[in-house]
Design a protein around this nucleic acid. Structure first.
Lengths: 336, 336
DNA sequence: TACCATAAGGTATACGTTTTCCCTATTAAT
DNA sequence: ATTAATAGGGAAAACGTATACCTTATGGTA
């Protein structure tokens, strides 16, 4: 592999000069600059990124830790990050953390070994303290989909409680009074925050949500089917279902349909996330749009800005709110 | 950041010994080894991956170039690669190449700048010669979804022609004789190969496919809708539709439904890829399963093996064949 | 006892950059 | 004409690690 010295020899200058040309540094004449560039071109020089990172003590790449690449939600997230990385001509170092403590930890650790200065992390398994410590060590450490007060200016997050509120209010407005909830069984904040939003809103309307009307399951299609089967088996009385996400909502609809129940005639259902699925399942899902791509872009920009040491407002915080997308799965309550 | 020398001092050994401990090298006594490890633990030592890559002249990461992270197809691909990377405890360097010559070139170039030895590349925009040259320079250069004879042992690819054949044969078996094809307008090999398979099979059955029965459009939902609109507008007579992929098939179904036509009663339709969408659209798509995850795993393993210089069979080639998944969108031809 | 093989570990160099400090002409200022 | 400033560029150190080569005990063997 051809190095800076080869260029220096071929161009009859010192390797310092070549380095200056590469970095558009000062102290090199127009003519020399041109000649060196010419030689680099001819010899097909490719700077050694590792040597560079070593001497500058920082890796130029943007590190990304997501839970699971397969999930369309994370694909969208990755896409958002990629778009700013590409725009700023920056490489992506990506790992999947699979919502397990060890894996997430290891993913971040590897990034640190590369002396990665900017990273966007989606962590659900690690505790606040651990993340706060990382934030202290890594200039461009930004969390996505998580809010930790102590490092609020490093968090780009969704207001789940508001989401719970919006979806519930929509169903209330449609005249529904009997609710069932299909939630995620994972012990992360999101489900409980959304549930809280739901509870608050029902409470304000003079209703309460009995625990027996909540079913917990895995946050995917299968889990949705499963949860709905339980709800029906237990004879829970409802006209509206609040699902943790679109996948669960879609699964629930499958089960309803298997039992001869029509959506939205016999029951309304509202999802969360607004992934592709929501548009293509039948009936089309009324759901909450999760502006994840927008959030990902913000997170990436933030991470890179912090890494560069740019003065970013520490007071400003990055909260996003999901918005209602009305489609066909939720309708006016059907009079019995 | 704490280095190997700090460890050496604290443990009262030379930094060479510390390095040996890190790499599980020989020439270090059990006791010393333990002590050094202890110190590393205490001081929270994190090896500098850049220094390492510099001195060893190679980056340990596995490079990945895909077209577009958003596409579930590539998400699945990425997932397959990630699974082997994780298993072998290797980091992923990922870029999106977006099927543009420059971007793909730049993605590979960046990977080379990092002296990445193993890479799985999905390139549709670069020409054979360019890729052959990269293969010559990079030990672990593996192409996925592309076949180039000169570097056959570096290619993990799908037999598109066989795919075209299988889908056509299935519809023939169901009694269909009037076909329409919805293809991709991109000038890459896949569409024409699949079309070739379709043509061959029809020919063997004594039928021909008139050019007017083929509609080219962008390979997504919108493209499928658009193509089907054209087909209907032009009054093309068909009972079966062969779509380039599931997204187009799904779009085509939307248009059919908008025109009051039932699938599969009025027209059968077969997709390609078997992405999530195929299972969740309505009716469920009969399609060809693209074993992309399996292929991605193979490609990643291959890339890493080549990079390590392991003796891999140069004679063996990695061709995969899509398999038919029967669902609800294709049925016995309806008697008029 | 003398010799050698071996185990354990140290010394020093190289990897390819960036960057600080220094040197030498040339030009501008007095 | 002399000095100061500046532009252009070179020499060398540093980044953190791996490793080839060297040194020193120690134990075994003839």
């Amino acid at each position: 592999m051809i190095t800076i010295k080869d260029i220096a020899n071929a161009a009859g200058v010192s390797h310092a000069t070549v380095s200056r040309v590469i970095n558009n540094g000062p102290k090199v004449g127009d003519e020399t600059r041109k000649r060196v560039k010419q030689v680099m071109q001819e010899l097909g020089y490719r700077p050694n990124a590792n040597a560079r990172a070593l001497v500058t003590q920082k890796h130029s790449a943007l590190g990304v830790v997501v839970a699971e690449l397969l999930d369309p939600f994370f694909a969208t997230l990755a896409h958002g990050i990629d778009s700013v990385a590409r725009q700023q001509n920056i490489q992506l170092l990506m790992s999947a953390g699979s919502i397990e403590k060890d894996t997430e930890l290891q993913a971040i650790d590897t990034l640190m070994q590369h002396r990665c200065e900017a990273m966007v992390v989606h962590s659900k398994a690690l505790d606040d303290d651990t993340l706060i410590e990382f934030a202290g060590q890594i200039p461009g450490f930004v969390l996505i989909n998580r809010y930790i007060p102590q490092i609020a200016h490093r968090c780009v997050w969704l207001d789940n409680t508001a989401g719970g509120k919006v979806m519930t209010q929509h169903l209330l407005d449609l005249g529904h009074r009997k609710f069932a909830v299909i939630s995620s069984r994972y012990q992360i904040d999101d489900p409980s925050e959304r549930l809280q939003g739901i509870r608050n809103t029902l409470h304000a309307a003079g209703l309460t949500l009995d625990d027996s009307h909540i079913e917990y399951s895995s946050p995917d299609q299968k889990g949705g089917e499963h949860a709905m089967r339980h709800l029906l088996a237990r004879g829970v009385d409802f006209t509206a279902v609040l699902a943790y996400n679109d996948a669960m909502a879609s699964g629930a609809m499958t089960t309803l349909s298997d039992h001869g129940l029509q959506v939205p005639t016999d029951a309304s259902i509202v999802g969360f996330d607004d992934v592709l699925l929501a548009k293509y399942c039948h009936p089309k899902l009324t759901t909450l749009h999760y502006p994840i791509e927008m959030m990902a872009v913000k997170a990436a920009e933030l991470a890179l800005a912090y890494a560069r040491g740019e003065p970013t407002s520490t007071t400003h915080t990055y909260k996003y709110t999901p918005t209602l997308v009305k489609r066909d799965s939720a309708a006016q309550v059907h009079p019995r």
